[in-house]
Design a protein around this nucleic acid. Structure first.
Lengths: 228, 228
DNA sequence: TGCGTTACTGACAGTAGTGTCAGTAATTAG
DNA sequence: CTAATTACTGACACTACTGTCAGTAACGCA
C-alpha cells in the first residue's frame, strides 16, 4: 500500500465541533503561560491544538477573546474543584487546616492553576478586570474560609483568642511562595512539597495555636515535627 | 520673541552620552515591567527615555540586550543596597529578624525590585540564565543569611533546637506574598505593610522561638502582639 | 451511492514593530 | 568664527504576526 493510498483513506482532518473549544483553550493556556499575552502566537496555539490557524477564529473572535476565555475557564475550573472538596466537617482546627493546605498544595501544583497565577502576575497591569475577577472569585473566598476556620478554632479554644487579629493572608503566604518558587526556580532548587507543607503547618499551628503548657486540655502545639 | 526664534536658540536635543544609558535602563525597566519582554515596544521605551528610537541602538545592540542589561542593572542595585545594610550586630534573634524583615519589606516595596520579581516570573521560562543569576546572587544569599541567624539563635537558646529543620524559605514566604499581592491586587485590597510585617514577625517568632513557659530565662515568645 | 451542509483549511492583505543607516545638528577644538 | 567630530535623529526596508475569506473536504441523510 503506497503512502498515497493510505492518505486517500485517512481523512486529512476530522470534524470535531464540540471537542475543539476545550482543546484550543488547553493549548492557549500552555502558550500564554510560556510566552505571555503579547508573546503568544496564534500559529503556535493552532499547532498545539492540532488545527489550522483559521479554526481558532471560528471559535474565538480574536486573540484577546481567546485569552480571556482561557483565563475564565481556568478560574471556573479552580472554583469548581475547590468547592467540591471543602467540606470542613467536625475535625479539629489542625486537622481542618492540614486538609485545607493539603488541597491547596495539590491544586496549585497542577500546571493549570500555577499557569493562571503566572498569567495574572504577568498581565495584571493590562487586564484590571481579570484581576478583579480572580480577586473576587478566588482570593476573597479563600480569605473568608480561613477566617471562618480561625473563628471556629477560637470558639473551641483550639486557637488563641488574639489570633483573630492575625492577617489571614499570612496563613496561605507559604502556598503562594511554594508555587512561584517551583514555577521559577523549580529546576535549580526543587522544594520538597511534603516537607514544606509540614513545616508550614507546624509554623502556623505554633503561631495561632494555644501555647502548649497553659492552655487547652488535650494537646495543641504540634510538638516536634515529624522526623526527617 | 516668536516661537521660531526660541526654537533657534533652544537646541532640539542635547548630547548627553553618559546619562543616556541609565535613563534608558530606567525607561526599559518601566516598560518591561508593564508589558513584559514581547509586549514592550522600543518606541515607547525611547519616548520614556526622551530620545529617538535610533538612540537606543547606539547604546544597546537590540531589544534582548537591553532587556538583559535592565535585569542585570536591577540585580546589582539590589545586591549593592542589601549588602550595605546587613550588619547583623549583637542583637537578639528577634531584633535581628525584625530589622532584616523591615529591610526586606522596604526594599521589595520599591517599584524597581518588585518589577524585577515580576519580570522574573513572567519571562522565567524563556530566560533560564537570568533565573539562574537571580537565584545565585539573591535567593541563595538570603537563604544563607537566614540559616546563619537561626543557627546563632539556637546557640543562644533563643530559638528552639529543632527549628533548624524548618525550611528557611518559610520565613520569608510572607515577604514574597506581600510583594506579589501588592503588585497585583494592591488597588483592590491594599495590605497594611506595618501590620502585615508585625504579624509576620510574631508568627515567625512563635514558630521558631522557645515556648513561653518552659524554656528560656528572660522571655522569648513575643507575648501578645501589639494591640490593634 | 450521491447530495447538501458546514467544519475546516491555507493563502492573502494589512499592520505593527524591529533594526539600519545616511544625514543632521550639537558640541569641541583650533 | 570655522572646521572637525560625533551624539543623535527619523525615514526606510524587512519581518512576523493577526484577522479574513473563498474554497475544500468531511460527514449526515436520503
Amino acid at each position: 500500500m503506497t503512502a498515497e493510498e493510505i492518505a486517500e483513506h485517512a481523512p486529512a482532518y476530522r470534524r470535531r465541533k464540540d471537542q475543539r473549544p476545550d482543546e484550543i483553550l488547553a493549548a492557549g493556556l500552555e502558550e500564554f503561560n510560556e510566552h505571555g499575552f503579547a508573546g503568544a502566537s496564534m500559529a503556535r496555539i493552532a499547532k498545539r491544538a492540532d488545527v489550522s490557524r483559521g479554526t481558532l477564529y471560528l471559535y474565538f473572535e480574536n486573540k484577546e477573546a481567546l485569552f480571556l476565555a482561557v483565563a475564565e475557564n481556568a478560574m471556573s475550573a479552580f472554583t469548581r474543584d475547590a468547592a467540591a472538596k471543602m467540606d470542613m466537617g467536625d475535625h479539629s482546627t489542625e486537622e481542618t487546616l492540614r486538609a485545607l493546605f493539603g488541597q491547596m498544595y495539590a491544586m496549585m501544583t497542577s500546571t493549570k492553576n500555577s499557569a493562571l497565577l503566572r498569567i495574572l502576575v504577568s498581565e495584571g497591569p493590562n487586564m484590571p478586570d481579570l484581576v478583579a475577577q480572580y480577586h473576587a472569585r478566588i482570593l476573597s473566598t479563600g480569605k473568608q474560609l480561613l477566617a471562618r476556620i480561625i473563628a471556629r478554632g477560637v470558639e473551641r479554644s483550639e486557637v488563641r483568642e488574639d489570633a483573630a487579629g492575625t492577617v489571614p493572608q499570612l496563613l496561605i503566604a507559604p502556598v503562594m511562595f511554594y508555587v512561584i518558587h517551583t514555577m521559577v526556580f523549580g529546576d535549580l532548587e526543587p522544594l520538597d512539597e511534603n516537607q514544606f507543607a509540614q513545616s508550614h503547618l507546624d509554623m502556623i499551628m505554633r503561631g495561632i495555636g494555644q501555647p502548649p503548657c497553659q492552655g487547652g486540655p488535650g494537646s495543641q502545639g504540634p510538638g516536634q515535627p515529624a522526623d526527617t
